[in-house]
């Protein structure tokens, strides 16, 4: 449903918004590519199957990407999610770190065994199934992340592949309110209702209460839909 409306009087504001959104999202994916490459190095066989402790090598990178300005200010949690069975000593494993308001990042420790917990079979979540099915860049959500943060979040993820085999996912959590903080100034410059939707039409960020984050855009007359580069996001504008 992509409508090309050509160059309108407000096309500059639209172009700038597209750039702002794409840069924010690409920044997170850039970080995820670093985590992806480091994860692959950690689980590379050294004459024995990898174990959970091998992933401790990721920590300096994960901690660094959780603290500071720029992209790090967007990221609330980051890590590597192992494909079940990858590690010799833990069938289910996340090397997952979250920012902590009081200081140093903290590790998420959860009972991940589906036989004792109904919640944490992570292989059904979009942030896992997307990369598993070959998507280079997955944006899951916005959704209520009751698994990790209890926040309304986006989870961005990329596949980790070693010698041609899928071994897990590198992912990062971005709270919707922070993503909003990064892109709303640009959306506000567009002098008409404008909002970002994910691939399913769920609104991620918006300059109008009519289409607020979490609501659904199911298409409509008088709206122009523009892809945000080659990301699974679109900018929808009314009459611009």
């Amino acid at each position: 449903m992509i409508t090309d409306v050509g160059a309108g009087p407000h096309s500059q504001a639209v172009t700038e918004a597209l750039t702002r959104v794409a840069d924010a999202v690409e920044g997170v994916f850039g970080t995820l590519r670093e985590v992806r490459d480091a994860s692959a190095r950690c689980v590379r066989r050294r004459g024995r199957p990898p174990v959970a402790a091998d992933l401790a090598g990721l920590r300096p990178l994960l901690w660094a990407r959780l603290t500071g300005n720029g992209v790090a200010a967007l990221i609330a949690g980051i890590g590597f999610i192992a494909a079940p069975g990858l590690l010799a000593d833990a069938h289910w494993y996340l090397e997952w770190w979250q920012e902590h308001p009081a200081g140093a990042p903290v590790q998420l420790l959860r009972d991940l065994d589906p036989s004792s917990s109904a919640f944490y079979d992570y292989t059904h979540w979009d942030w896992y199934t997307g990369p598993l099915s070959g998507a280079e860049r997955t944006i899951c959500g916005p959704y209520v992340d009751y698994l990790c943060t209890d926040e309304y979040s986006l989870t961005l993820s990329v596949p980790v592949v070693l010698d041609g085999a899928f071994v897990g996912v590198a992912a990062a959590d971005v709270f919707v309110r922070r993503f909003d903080g990064a892109v709303l100034p640009a959306l506000r410059e567009i002098p008409a209702p404008a909002f970002l939707v994910n691939a399913s039409g769920r609104v991620v960020s918006s300059n109008t209460v009519r289409w607020i984050a979490g609501s659904l855009y199911r298409g409509g007359e008088g709206f122009a839909v523009r892809p945000v580069r080659d990301l699974p996001l679109s900018l929808v504008t009314a009459g611009v």
Binding site: S117, A118, F119, P142, Y143, V144, Y146, D150, E151, Y152
Partner: peptide
């Protein structure tokens, strides 16, 4: 456990973090 999960999933589908909590 599955019953609890079902009800939490319903709440999460509301898109409200507070209702889910």
């Amino acid at each position: 456990r599955l019953d609890g999960r079902f009800h939490i999933e319903v709440a999460a589908a509301s898109q409200s973090a507070r209702l889910t909590q």
